[in-house]
Simulated assay, not measured.
Amino acid sequence: MKMKFRLPVLALFCVFLTITTYSQNSTGYEIGDVATDFSLKNVDGKMVSLADYTDAKGYIVIFSCNTCPYVVAYEDRMIELHNKYNNKGYPVIAINPNNPELSPGDSFEKMKERSKDKNFPFAYVFDEKQEIFPQYGATRTPHVFLLEKTAKGNVVRYIGAIDDNFKDASAVKETFLENAIDALMNKKEVPVTTTRAIGCTIKV
């Protein structure tokens, strides 16, 4: 009797696992997809969209926030990325997707404070209606989507982590994002197109 009970349960579990895996894998953008533009409020009160960057060759879109320790560990590197690549046509655009009712430290007012404290040189915008991060398929903060501006739209070329060591920038061995940007700038194939985003779950 025990075997008869366990087999159906195991079968149901396998079905559930398959459905869950499919759902996760089928949500959001994949490499080669054309990403949607957006119009989101920046910390300076102005609305920001990808189309505003008329001279851009692409975009470093990072789903970010104020409160996640992983993001805090990466903030200086995000600033360095923008300072390094903005003038080369790849600006950083940070998007806060968190619900401030669940994470008060991620409110728009707190975003303005954090941007001022860190002197962010890049746009830091608020996905207030939580409509953009599901379209992209972001699940963590930070979660990177590298886009290349092409004739057919903003094509997703890399998804995942900034690099392989959130704890210590000096110990990084693989700069996944920089490698991807450099490849695009040199008209080469991106060597690694997807990595696992390590960070805090988005608060919905």
Score class of each variant (00 low, 15 high):
residue 97 P to V: 00
residue 40 L to K: 04
residue 201 T to G: 15
residue 101 E to F: 09
residue 192 V to R: 04
residue 83 N to P: 11
residue 154 N to P: 08
residue 1 M to R: 14
residue 163 D to K: 06
residue 11 A to G: 12
residue 137 G to K: 00
residue 168 D to P: 12
residue 190 V to E: 08
residue 85 Y to H: 01
residue 59 Y to H: 06
residue 189 E to A: 01
residue 15 V to T: 13
residue 189 E to P: 00
residue 137 G to I: 04
residue 62 I to N: 04
residue 161 A to I: 06
residue 175 T to V: 10
residue 180 A to C: 11
residue 5 F to N: 13
residue 104 P to R: 09
residue 48 V to G: 02
residue 162 I to A: 05
residue 33 D to A: 14
residue 30 E to M: 10
residue 132 I to P: 01
residue 137 G to M: 01
residue 180 A to K: 01
residue 19 I to A: 14
residue 76 D to S: 14
residue 56 A to R: 06
residue 133 F to K: 11
residue 164 D to Y: 02
residue 89 G to A: 09
residue 168 D to F: 04
residue 22 Y to Q: 10
residue 124 Y to Q: 09
residue 19 I to F: 07
residue 12 L to R: 08
residue 23 S to G: 06
residue 1 M to V: 06
residue 105 G to Y: 09
residue 125 V to F: 00
residue 6 R to K: 13
residue 20 T to W: 03
residue 153 G to F: 03
residue 28 G to M: 04
residue 10 L to Q: 04
residue 148 E to F: 03
residue 185 M to S: 07
residue 95 I to K: 10
residue 9 V to H: 06
residue 110 K to N: 14
residue 118 K to N: 07
residue 144 V to E: 03
residue 28 G to D: 04
residue 157 R to G: 05
residue 114 R to F: 09
residue 89 G to P: 05
residue 4 K to N: 10
residue 148 E to S: 06
residue 54 T to I: 13
residue 11 A to P: 12
residue 70 Y to L: 09
residue 150 T to F: 04
residue 189 E to R: 13
residue 166 F to W: 14
residue 138 A to V: 04
residue 30 E to F: 10
residue 104 P to F: 13
residue 151 A to K: 08
residue 72 V to N: 13
residue 177 L to T: 03
residue 191 P to K: 07
residue 107 S to R: 12
residue 119 N to A: 15
residue 174 E to S: 10
residue 127 D to E: 00
residue 200 C to Y: 02
residue 157 R to W: 11
residue 63 F to C: 01
residue 123 A to K: 15
residue 167 K to L: 15
residue 65 C to D: 14
residue 56 A to G: 03
residue 53 Y to A: 01
residue 188 K to D: 12
residue 195 T to S: 07
residue 111 M to S: 02
residue 81 L to F: 13
residue 147 L to D: 00
residue 48 V to H: 03
residue 97 P to W: 09
residue 155 V to G: 11
residue 91 P to V: 00
residue 43 V to G: 02
residue 189 E to Y: 05
residue 11 A to V: 15
residue 27 T to H: 12
